[in-house]
Design a protein around this nucleic acid. Structure first.
Lengths: 154, 154
DNA sequence: GCTTGAGCTAAAGTTAGCTTTAGGAATTAT
DNA sequence: ATAATTCCTAAAGCTAACTTTAGCTCAAGC
């Protein structure tokens, strides 16, 4: 039975739709910081429901857990976040989103040029000047095509 | 020394900017299918430069290697792809891209509603009716928030 | 008071997309 | 002919974001 302002990991899982294992993982990543009861079990605050919901949404938009942790760190420490706190955080969040959409759109427009000329000469139009949409996930250098690649090669 | 229409993996790597190991990996994923010379070394076609460039670009746009393999499978078998082949494939590609951008934009617009009301009541506005931007990468169910999560909990 | 369900930890497994390592073999350069 | 590159395979390692498993402990219900 969850008391006043404390809920168990199972209840939190039920409310957010997350798996219990995922919540534990989020704790290791610093996304939530539950206390423990006498028996060593985690006790979350009801406001953590909203906190984790925010995490889920941010993920839908493609943010990594690392970035989300940074964003959440802007929430006031020591007190339960208010609606206004969440509004402010969501706005900064939206700004980044806008950038992402714009970068993707710019890149798409460049691709149009390539499709138009039919040569797929991407060293000149699309990606030679990287217009980084999403930061590279894999490691290693990523540049595109040398001269010869440009010429149609029947 | 690369002959007429055959190039070594190192040359291909130099032309695409890919690591040799990445190209070998792409082969295991069915993205290129080089032949072998007498000594067992891979011999690629010059047209593979363009093929792999396409792969790199598609990745920039967020496509998985699996999807890219599907798209490439539409290229004619048995002959070297022409500029026209690449144009056609790029157009279908662009269509998917447009969808992605739109989905992301719709989702952003929904977020605006949440920011506006300040309550972050996402079960009603943003994500309760999933507007799937990018297919989930992790496994497991992902639905958002129950009733109580909606009410401000100062 | 005992059974059952929920929780706990630590470690290993999973997928994607590669890289790194280890130990050879083929090419190329001198 | 020999040294220096380049290439080969197979297997293990890496990051992100989790899940699964194993073995135990806590808490709740009857």
């Amino acid at each position: 039975m969850d008391r006043r302002n404390e809920i168990s990991i199972g209840t939190l899982a039920g409310r957010t739709g997350l798996a219990v294992s995922a919540i534990r993982y989020y704790e290791t990543q610093g996304l939530v910081a539950p206390e423990r009861n006498a028996g060593g079990q985690r006790r979350f605050l009801r406001s953590d429901i909203r906190r984790l919901s925010f995490v889920l949404i941010a993920q839908k938009f493609g943010f990594t857990l690392d970035r989300i942790r940074e964003v959440l760190s802007r929430l006031p420490q020591g007190r339960t976040p208010t609606a206004k706190d969440w509004t402010e955080i969501s706005q900064g969040f939206r700004a980044e989103l806008d950038e992402q959409i714009e970068a993707l759109t710019r890149l798409r427009n460049k691709l149009d040029g390539c499709i138009g000329c039919g040569c797929l000469s991407l060293d000149r139009c699309a990606l030679y000047n990287p217009d980084d949409v999403a930061a590279d996930k894999g490691a290693g250098p990523r540049y595109l095509m040398g001269d010869e690649a440009v010429r149609p090669e029947g």
